[in-house]
């Protein structure tokens, strides 16, 4: 079954980092920017703007996030079974209650999509793996992922990968500026 996902079109990214800030806000306890930045354990963004190089050698921002691979190498590397497929269909979601912060998932992830921070959902642990959860909470409420909502340039879209391919829009979620092919 196909699931809607966040499609990244790095050629449209201007590097404003709105996606990152709104992502952290959406994953905060209070969900409001004005209060989220005062929370005792700060929420962390799950999308990051990496510095890439386009084929012409020009520095370009690259919005980088979890691709929710299937099969997912991070999930195969996760010893306590903290990366779960049963929280939201089609998404690989870290269960902070199970994560031990060992680092194996990031070792297995080729995309630099998993980071380690003190997580407000597991405050008793010093670090927990933090990655995109496809905003499944927001999706349940009929909202689209926060990063997509924040994107002003169309570099992030929420849709079906297949339809996107049909549209011939070129680059997919896997696309990266940094490849010098």
């Amino acid at each position: 079954m196909q699931h809607k996902t966040v499609i990244v079109r790095p050629e449209l990214c201007v590097g404003c980092m709105q996606c990152a800030i709104r992502c952290a806000q959406a994953h905060s306890a209070t969900k409001e920017l004005a209060t989220a930045v005062f929370e005792p354990v700060l929420a962390k963004p799950r999308i990051h703007i990496g510095v890439g190089v386009n084929p012409q050698g020009v520095l370009k921002p690259f919005p980088n996030k979890c691709r929710h691979c299937d099969p997912a190498p991070c999930q195969e590397a996760c010893m306590p079974g903290a990366i779960r497929s049963d929280i939201a269909e089609g998404s690989k979601v870290v269960d902070p209650a199970l994560c031990i912060g060992c680092g194996m998932c990031a070792m297995a992830c080729p995309y630099y999509a998993i980071r380690y921070h003190h997580d407000l959902h597991a405050p008793e642990r010093t670090i927990t793996a933090i990655k995109c959860d496809n905003c499944h909470d927001r999706q349940k409420k009929g909202q689209i992922p926060a990063c997509v909502e924040a994107c002003k340039t169309g570099a992030l879209e929420f849709g079906y990968v297949n339809e996107h391919i049909k549209k011939g829009a070129g680059r997919l979620a896997n696309a990266a500026w940094s490849m010098q092919s």
Binding site: M17, Q18, A20, I21, R22, A24, Q25, L33, A34, A36, V37, L42, A43, K44, P45, R115, H117, A150
Partner: peptide, 24 residues
């Protein structure tokens, strides 16, 4: 969000700079 929080600075062109309010 950066501007909303006053965390973007365009005062010089070593920047523009933004401070991450979430600390990462």
């Amino acid at each position: 969000g950066f501007c909303e929080l006053g965390l973007s600075c365009r005062n010089c062109i070593m920047g523009p700079c933004r401070i991450d309010p979430f600390g990462s």
